[in-house]
Design a protein around this nucleic acid. Structure first.
Length: 468
RNA sequence: GCCCCCAUCGUCUAGCCAGGUCUAGGACACCGCCCUUUCAAGGCGGAGAUCGCGGGUUCAAAUCCCGCUGGGGGUGCCA
């Protein structure tokens, strides 16, 4: 059975790159009817917080991800301790009493000499007695993994292909810190092995870690899983997408009024394209059925907010049902202090869902449906100051019966043009200015179909009074 | 510095593995036209890539091989 996992560390908001990794990992597992695990990697107690963990989980759920199992590494320290001891006992790891200062000096020396740094291995050769003495003295120590000399680790990456790295490139690395907490490269192996993870899907920045981890798999006689290293997501300047590119968290896009379905869909298209050419809009279910790791592109992709925006618009205007859309739009309008009942909003959206691309634009674009005492733009004012404006508006009021609709207003327009000798354009301009306070925006016939007659009349009367 | 990864329109990409059908296809953005009471949306059309560069292999290379250049990532008692 295929088992994948997403293993974020709760040290900040969920990053778009991580979100995509989670999605690919999830899709791959679901495609093969396997298991998807969420594992919070909080071994770095300094930087990890419960608050971020909560936000992380919340954003993952919002995106539409569900997991079959959940783990938190800070709950598993006993397990790691046990395996660290095992590695020491097997001779694959050893206690290291070097101080941070000593190590910094080693590093500095390598730098000045211009040679690549790796740990000297000073504590490799400590005798049992020396180790015991140091421990008794209370000297702090780390545990390092003993990297065998000269070996080349080879693995077939599911997206990158053949990768070979010589382990001489790095020295013996720390697997347990001096405060007793285990490090990433170690726990990730123990957990993935114990949890039965078969396919490790993660960012390509982890490629250099992979040989270290393979070494640990072997030392512990665990079966080595398959690896799939995803290319990173780039910012406009083609460097790794990060805070300095502006908004990079899922949370941000969520608050900006992007739909989870659209973000999910868009992220999938960054570095992956379906066999079926041309198709870009996919539901989660469709993605599950067509997604294959082998179709993932091996070159990095630039994140395009423009295209995300477009796709969000597609979801708003044609993919979601009106009911679903209503659920997403409502909070944004409530926040703008608009008053309405749900049924009215449904009617509005049935007709005007094609007027905005993000939910945060909805209050402004939909204002004509909700606000009777709107501000008048300069252009609208100058239109309404025109003498003909009064005639047109009076004519409209006089000819409005007990109800108003798009069809009716068009009939009135024709009659007005004939009787008052006004051009169609002028008629509509005046009416638009009076009804919406602006000269651009939603179709007046659409507005008339949705807006109750009393509000329609009220708005015109208000303008009539203002400009008489 | 050292190690690793990558390279098709501005951007996301198809094609590359099994070389000819590619005068390189699609999408976003851009431009124009149409629709129209405005802005959008929508429809139609346009512009945009000597397939990073240089060698090779071949009758034939975006596709295979080598080198270079460029970009990215890693080089922690972060993950």
């Amino acid at each position: 059975m295929v088992v994948t996992r997403f293993a974020p560390s709760p040290t900040g908001y969920l990053h778009l790159g991580n979100a995509r990794t989670a999605i690919f990992s999830y899709l791959f597992a679901r495609h093969y009817k396997g298991k998807f695990i969420l594992r919070v990697e909080d071994t770095d107690l300094e930087r990890s917080t419960k608050e971020y963990e909560k936000l992380l989980i919340d954003d993952l759920r919002w995106l539409g991800l569900e997991w079959d199992e959940f783990y938190r590494q800070s709950d598993r320290f006993d397990i790691y301790r046990e395996y660290a001891q095992k590695l020491v006992k097997l001779g694959h790891a050893y206690e290291c009493f070097c101080t941070p200062q000593e190590l910094e000096e080693e590093r500095e020396r390598a730098r000045t000499k211009g040679i690549p740094y790796r740990y000297s291995g000073k504590c490799r050769v400590l005798t049992k007695e020396e180790v015991e003495t140091f421990k008794k003295e209370g000297k702090p120590y780390t545990i390092r993994f003993r990297v065998p000399d000269g070996e080349t680790i080879v693995f077939e990456d599911l997206v990158k292909g053949h990768i070979a790295i010589n382990v001489d490139d790095f020295g013996d690395f720390v697997i347990v810190r001096s405060d007793g907490t285990p490090t990433y490269n170690f726990v990730v192996v123990v957990d993935d092995a114990l949890m039965g993870v078969t396919h490790i899907v993660r960012g390509e920045d982890h490629i250099p870690n992979t040989p270290k981890q393979i070494l640990i798999y072997r030392a512990l006689s665990f079966q080595v899983p398959k690896f799939a290293h995803l290319p990173v997501i780039l910012g406009e300047d083609r460097s790794k997408l990060s805070k300095r590119h502006g908004a990079v968290s899922v949370r941000h896009y969520r608050e900006e009024g992007y739909l989870p379905q659209a973000l999910f869909n868009y992220l999938c298209l960054l570095g992956w394209s379906p066999k079926e050419e041309g198709k870009e809009i996919f539901s989660k279910e469709e993605l599950i059925s067509v997604f294959e790791l082998k179709d993932v592109n091996d070159s990095p992709a630039v994140f395009s907010k423009e295209k995300l925006r477009w796709m969000n618009g597609v979801y708003i205007r044609e993919v979601l049902s009106v009911e679903e859309l209503t659920n997403y739009v409502e909070p944004f309008l409530r926040k703008a202090k608009y008053e309405f009942d749900r049924g009215y909003l449904v009617k509005v959206l049935e007709r005007a869902r094609d007027s905005f691309e993000t939910l945060s634009e909805a209050p402004e674009k939909l204002e004509p449906f909700f606000v009777d005492h709107m501000e008048l733009s300069q252009e609208a004012k100058s239109i309404l100051e025109n003498v003909k404006a009064q005639d047109i508006l009076k004519f409209v009021l006089d000819n409005t019966s007990d109800s108003i609709s798009g069809q009716k207003i068009k009939e009135i327009a024709k009659a007005a043009q004939k009787q008052l000798q006004v051009k169609p354009k002028d008629f509509w301009h005046v009416l638009r200015a009076a009804l919406t306070g602006r000269l651009e925006g939603i179709g007046i016939d659409v507005l008339c179909d949705v807006l109750p007659k009393e509000r329609f009349t009220k708005r015109i009367q208000r303008i009539l009074e203002l400009y008489q």
